[in-house]
Design a binder for these strands. Structure first.
Lengths: 333, 333
DNA sequence: CTGAAAGCGCTAACAT
DNA sequence: ATGTTAGCGCTTTCAG
């Protein structure tokens, strides 16, 4: 496979020690006399020896590799989560195998099984939907899993996220205080755990608490173009304030309004429930629930390192603080 | 490691065949009688046997894993490239190990070495800079490498990209035909191969061919805020048309202009040299050189699969067609 | 502190 | 068509 294939055996021979000793110095085992350690190190450097991680993995049953399951890399929401994960993984010397499941050729449970076959030491799961087969796949294994930026319906798995209910309620309240009474909620997939258990109930409760009627929930609005096309419906329904879960979708609505000569925020207020770089870069900039995506990823990965080392993890259901960033798509009165 | 650790040996015993035969059916080897194959398959399913990819990798010296080296996952340029890579990798059943090198804790050659230690079957390199140590690291190995969305200075490595010189010249010409004479070039890192060998020479040649003087090249303008702050300099230099390599940077300039009440495109035309989703989502939408990022990634990965199988690859320096997307940041007269 | 030896789970000749 | 037998390169008892 490699041009030069220096093995631990070559080093042992050259340094006149056993492979066991070489293994010890490679792994930083302290039970090696300083001068033998130095001698071995010298040979390692001279021969440019590099341990074969696959062989190490087979022998030690640890691959120092974690698997990431993510719907779509080109969605900045996941990219920013991944960055937090990646930085902490680097810190703890773990490699990352990424499996993208947007492609319909790959189901969630297949993705999980594939990672387990690769003997990853842990998995971070970022998809907003966790099908039953995926739950089963996780339960069949001892490999630890952490959910990042999402939750499962029974809180069976460790997770790092924010309090979506509270955040949405606060956002709705902002619109309400700006005088908006015809509030709408725009969702992508309406069947995700977060939507079913948090966003939709929070919305319904808010509407009923404030006697605002049934309101309007729009589902399956997933990208810029869906958002763009939704505007006419919003107009028709007389919506004057809207929470949009995905910020690219929110930008679609915004651009549609701009192109139609509809004033944002005067005639329509928009809040995106997940701010990525895109939300801050458009004009008018979008008021947003800022989830600490990088931190969510980082904390999730940190928790996973503990789980992989069988360390004590006192709290496995973590909620990080969010922030409501008031920008130009709300009047903020 | 796993709760249930069914090995090929267990299957062999239960199916009353040798492990070799089990291995054969697992790997789709045809030299197995149909009824034994069926019997083995039945046991595999009953026991939920899953091959240990690490052991397979050690024995076969192939890991069906490729390494990706990427500067920054949250840059859509790389995310879109990665998506193309990922889709083709899935098609050919390769897993992907991602190594991000933006973090200063990780040098290019260390990233490469790390991937080689993991015994990846191939590497796709996406960073726009390829330091000498990285070149050396690649040369020390037989593991194939493909550059995606970038080039190396001596065309030593297979690569998939576009003709940057031609594209830039065409973009400059568009500005010129719109009547702009004070043209500028805005770069991130000025020392990348693409900038040094393609963009800067193309710019200089264009300026001199059209007697437009020295022109202005601005370097190290890397993000939205850098772009935002650059506007005053552009004003000072009387620039009326600008090519910006990074589209987030371009948006920074655009937003700065909007906020300063400067009309785009009337007073300043902007073309971004790499269009991601962001370029099309801002208003006015950015005129752009549309690089087929997804395709570049896909073609690079496809080429890598051939290289990994020692197949013939007639052309290793591939240039894909680009497109100039005329949008609202140029007048397009 | 160091070495010998037995695997880790699988593939790949080589036999039969 | 199937079985036998060496490894792949390393870690990890177990002795000493």
């Amino acid at each position: 496979m490699r041009k030069q294939d220096i093995t631990i055996y070559d080093v042992a021979r050259e340094a006149k020690v056993s492979m066991a000793t070489v293994s010890r110095v490679v792994n930083g085992n302290t039970n090696v006399r300083k001068d033998t350690r130095d001698r071995v190190m010298k040979v390692i450097n001279r021969l440019h020896y590099q341990p074969n991680a696959v062989a190490q993995g087979l022998a030690s049953k640890r691959t120092t590799t974690v698997g990431l399951i993510v719907p779509d890399l080109t969605n900045l929401y996941f990219a920013e989560l991944s960055k937090g994960i990646d930085d902490i993984a680097l810190l703890y010397k773990y490699n990352i195998i990424i499996t993208s499941i947007e492609n319909r050729l790959m189901r969630e449970d297949q993705a999980i099984q594939g990672l387990l076959n690769k003997q990853v030491d842990g998995v971070i799961y970022m998809s907003d939907t966790l099908p039953e087969e995926a739950v089963e796949a996780f339960k069949r294994t001892d490999t630890p899993v952490v959910l990042a930026g999402t939750k499962d319906s029974h809180s069976e798995f460790p997770s790092v996220a924010i309090d979506y209910k509270k955040a949405d309620t606060e956002a709705l309240n902002l619109l309400y205080n700006d005088g908006r009474k015809n509030l709408a909620l725009v969702l992508g997939n309406p069947d995700t755990v977060v939507n079913v258990q948090n966003r939709i109930p929070a919305y319904k409760k808010f509407m009923s608490d404030h006697n605002l009627g049934e309101g309007h929930i729009y589902s399956n609005v997933k990208d810029h173009s869906d958002g763009y096309n939704l505007l006419s419906q919003l107009d028709q329904d007389g919506v004057d304030g809207v929470i949009v879960t995905n910020d690219v979708t929110a930008v679609g609505i915004l651009n549609s309004a701009i192109d139609a000569g509809k004033k944002v925020p005067e005639e329509l207020e928009i809040i995106t429930a997940s701010a990525t770089q895109i939300a801050s870069v458009v004009r008018p900039a979008l008021t947003a629930i800022r989830q600490p995506l990088y931190d969510i990823g980082a904390v999730a990965m940190r928790m996973l390192t503990k789980l992989m080392n069988n360390e004590e993890v006192p709290e496995t259901q973590i909620e990080l603080p969010y922030e409501i960033l008031k920008k130009q798509s709300t009047t903020n009165e």
